[in-house]
Simulated scan of single mutants.
Amino acid sequence: MKDILITASLVVYHNSKEDIKKVIDSFLGYGSTSILFIVDNSASDSLSALCSDSRVKYIFNNTNVGFGAAHNIAFNGAYQLESDYHILLNPDVYFDPSIIKDLIYKTESDASIGLLMPKIVYPNGDTQNLCKLIPSPKDLILRRFIPFKGIKKRLENRYELRFYCYNEEAEIPILSGCFMMIRTSVLKKVEGFDERFFMYLEDVDLCRRIGKISRLVYYPKVEIVHNYEKGSYKNKKLLSYHIKSAIKYFNKWGWAFDKERSRINKKTLLNLKRQK
């Protein structure tokens, strides 16, 4: 396989050095043709001590500009380097570096793929349900606050595609921003993240825009570990960010009426049920 330049971005905000080192080692373990942009929104640059490798480009913002805006800084670096693929990384993931080669092989074999996400598991090995339909207000708002467990479970089963085994490759409209490998040319074409989303829903919005020009594929033949904490379920400030982002998202894409959402979700459900 030809030499392929892989860039990645990691946005940090007062994360533990231990967690960040795991991410750095996972990505840089791929090899010499990898460049990692670490964009630090923290109040201090203490994490810069982990960035001695020449393949790490550390950018200190000295203020929290938001998740999407910080990643966009790294995206601009990827465009300048003319990388082939760019990986979005969360500070709470780690993986065997060899998976990157597998993901490259997959995307190189199919030019229609613009975004690829591997299987995501908890540290105990359980699969995380991060393949999703395009959300409606009931998926993001009613599901979060409804007190009726039966209704909530039905909504989750459909929205998070829990009837699907998660062991088969599939085209999925919404994949998680905790780990995405995207063709840099596609990322540039859609102009990265919409910076109106300070935190939450920016990955959903990005998936929708990428989905208009290429395929989004879930690829479970390789996996990563994600310490998924669902911060907005525990922290009122994070919950307020989530609610504000949901309002911005539906103002942009439509609340009750979203023909594109209905069409794509219907197609996705039919295709997945055929795979069962």
Results as ranks from 00 to 15, higher is better:
I35K: 10
I104D: 03
K153E: 15
S9K: 01
G77K: 14
R183T: 09
E168Q: 15
L89I: 04
A170Q: 09
L239T: 09
I146F: 10
L116A: 01
S46G: 04
E195A: 04
I213S: 04
G77W: 14
N64E: 13
Q275A: 05
I38R: 00
V186W: 08
H71F: 13
K244V: 00
F257Q: 08
F67W: 13
Y58D: 10
K266V: 14
I4V: 15
I182M: 02
G177F: 05
C165D: 15
N167L: 13
R261Q: 07
F95D: 00
C207F: 07
S109P: 11
F145G: 08
K244R: 12
N235E: 12
Y249F: 13
P147L: 10
I264P: 02
L116F: 13
D92I: 10
S32H: 12
V12M: 07
Y94W: 14
L216W: 03
S83R: 01
A111F: 09
N61E: 12
F163Q: 09
M180K: 03
L5D: 11
H71D: 07
D203W: 00
K17H: 02
S214Q: 03
P91I: 10
N227D: 11
I120F: 02
I24C: 12
P118V: 08
S98A: 10
D102I: 06
K244H: 05
Y79A: 05
P173F: 05
C165Y: 09
R144V: 09
R208G: 06
A43M: 08
V39A: 10
F27H: 01
R274T: 02
K149M: 08
L175Q: 05
D258E: 05
N72Y: 09
L175I: 10
S185Q: 06
D40S: 02
K248Y: 12
D84V: 12
D25Y: 12
C207A: 05
L47Y: 06
L206S: 00
T33I: 12
V222E: 05
L272D: 06
Y228C: 11
S98F: 09
Y241T: 01
L130T: 06
L175K: 03
Y233H: 13
G192C: 07
G231V: 15
M180L: 15
G192R: 00
C131Y: 02
E229V: 14
S34Y: 10
I141Y: 01
D194Y: 09
I141S: 01
D102F: 08
